[in-house]
Design a protein around this nucleic acid. Structure first.
Lengths: 357, 357
DNA sequence: GACACGGTGGAAACCGGTGTCAATCGTGTC
DNA sequence: GACACGATTGACACCGGTTTCCACCGTGTC
């Protein structure tokens, strides 16, 4: 496909659109009606301080009367920047994606920006060129990078080169923390550990998310920190590699529960895998939490829909999204090291219980 | 908020962006390099037949060499239309939303269009004005309307007035089926009924989705059709009103299972509610499918994650999205009554079984 | 050889905003 | 009353494309 591939087949005027009545007002109309030049209208729109109050009010009245709103395309053309914000992601969890989108939309409500979604595949050979062409062609105002794209330094470097603002959402402070929001997964992992320790468990296992997500490491690291507080630790064999999917949870559960002695508590990197472990336990004839304690991470909807409902670590995904986009729009790129931390918290439901006698 | 509310605080040039090297090529550059006027380049971009082959090839070579791609904003400004496609929805199911988005993106890949997401609330007093301002300001090329927005005639009317192309995705052929994709939920309901009938059930109940979704009615209607084939029918009391949520599934399940005699099979309007019924059955000490058969609808991820895995009706959501956007872009608005039907199909898992002795 | 004609290419205006820079306005100062 | 100076305002070019309209090309016809 040629790099100049463009939408083809521009349909002709839609004959069914009688356009109701008058066409949309433009800045020229407003200027004429207010008896000023278009530049002055432009100043009002852009909240320039160099407009006399009396003039401003007159123009604002005309704008309100005609319901005028500047054309984002024309404005963007002149600004050399669009009023679109991109969300570039490769997260496979629908609940995460939707929550994040809702958070971003929360943050841009009434701002005149719009959200353009752009899933991608980090393993694709065209990964970076896809992003470059997307960002450059649309002249995006800024992009939001959730994990794991946020953890890819190539993307950050590329966006720096292009000169596109971005904000990274991650589970940990990255090495070059330009401007980012941190979910503080480490703290969540520690919370899970403390809860499990308090219930008296000693034979404890961990199911990790994929290596390619920093959150996998953080959640494990935090969990080990929490265990260490009680003098416990995780042997290498107690850590099993999952993939953040339900199926991988089943597989890892099968493996752990076939061991002898088997663990009495399993902490899972996310809720999907925890749901898989519940499935696995059921197949093995074990009851949760009597025979086995299972703890998840994220507190997405699935945590409540499985049986028993999952004890898990709640992460404020939507809130994180809102704050991220507010910072992006606010252009608070001044601080060289602006890092906002959001804290997770433990939600105790019915999948965790005292260690079996 | 004033109707002319616009993005404020345009940040100044990002000093960290050294811009690598040369700036992006424009149509003027290409014209100069190819030794033609910009209009001729424009003709090539828009595939006009009135360019001599030799000229076209020369221009295409320059375009390829410089990796030129026309600026969507400038093009859109001149076309009086953007190259953005909106998805306007009020569906609360994250899995549906994500699958639909992925389908739409499948359909626009490589087309030069981008997807702008726009959740909304049909109950909001500003519902219609929000949509109008979104569509008009962005001069959307077209919009995709999934349920239940697709079923709102006010929205269709509004878009006709504005003259914005749209495609409706619905569970049934709507009264004024301009241009739409139909999921054929009725057929799915009938499939569920036949399966349940074949298992020998007689005491059968149905948990409906919210009244505001046509799919609720279609799924019920199809289910009743299927039962009728076997001479069975649903008494009013056998139909309980849910809300497509897990919680409503639990509540409806609680009610149905407390009856005497209780139903031996429950068909649920979607998987979320079916998961709720499983939860309810467990609380009531019933095993599924030995004591109770539960059938869902959608075949989203939750269907596999609960225990037992749900027998359900698979709907090709992503595929529907792809086809919808292809039609929208293709501008196939010629046919006055272009309706594409997509068929669901039954997936038998472990939540359904023979009627208890 | 003059003329008509369809295919091709370009100049200039336009889409709806913004930046630049000079002109104008008002007021305080001497 | 003239001058200086900051506050306002507007004229004009420009962002990167498309459309309108016209000139020009080569060819076939009379």
């Amino acid at each position: 496909m040629s790099p100049s591939k463009t939408p083809s087949s521009i349909p002709e005027e839609n004959e069914t659109s009688v356009e109701g009545g008058r066409r949309r007002a433009t800045i020229n109309d407003i200027a004429r009606l207010a008896g000023v030049s278009k530049k002055t209208v432009s100043r009002v729109i852009n909240q320039s301080p160099f407009v006399r109050d009396e003039t401003r009010e007159r123009i604002e009245a005309v704008i309100a009367e005609w319901g005028y709103a500047p054309d984002p395309q024309a404005r963007g053309l002149a600004f050399r920047r669009s009023f679109l914000i991109g969300m570039i992601y490769d997260n496979p969890n629908p609940q995460y994606v939707v929550n994040m989108q809702l958070g971003l939309l929360d943050g841009m409500r009434g701002s005149g920006f719009e959200l353009v979604v752009h899933p991608c595949n980090r393993a694709s050979p065209t990964f970076l060129t896809d992003i470059r062409s997307f960002v450059e062609r649309q002249k995006l105002f800024g992009v939001v990078l959730p994990p794991s794209v946020s953890e890819d330094e190539r993307v950050a470097k590329l966006l720096n080169e292009i000169g596109c603002a971005y904000i990274r959402i991650a589970s940990v402070e990255l090495d070059k923390p330009e401007h980012m929001i941190v979910g503080h997964d480490r703290m969540g992992g520690a919370q899970a550990a403390r809860h499990i320790v308090e219930l008296g468990h000693k034979r404890i296992a961990f199911i990790s998310g994929p290596e390619t997500f920093r959150s996998s490491h953080e959640r494990r690291g935090g969990f080990e920190d929490g265990l260490a507080e009680a003098g416990l630790s995780l042997a290498p064999a107690d850590i099993v590699q999952g993939a953040y999917t339900f199926e991988s949870g089943v597989a890892c559960g099968d493996e752990l529960l076939s061991r002898s002695p088997r663990p009495t508590a399993i902490f899972c990197g996310n809720d999907e895998m925890a749901a898989g472990v519940l499935q696995s336990a059921r197949k093995a004839g074990l009851s949760v939490p009597q025979d086995l304690t299972v703890v998840g991470f994220d507190d997405f909807q699935i945590a409540k829909a499985v049986w028993p409902p999952l004890t898990t670590i709640h992460t404020p995904t939507r809130e994180i999204g809102r704050i991220a986009v507010e910072k992006l729009i606010g252009g608070e790129r001044r601080e060289p090291r602006d890092v906002t931390k959001m804290e997770p918290n433990l939600v105790i439901r019915e999948s965790s219980g005292p260690v079996p006698a």
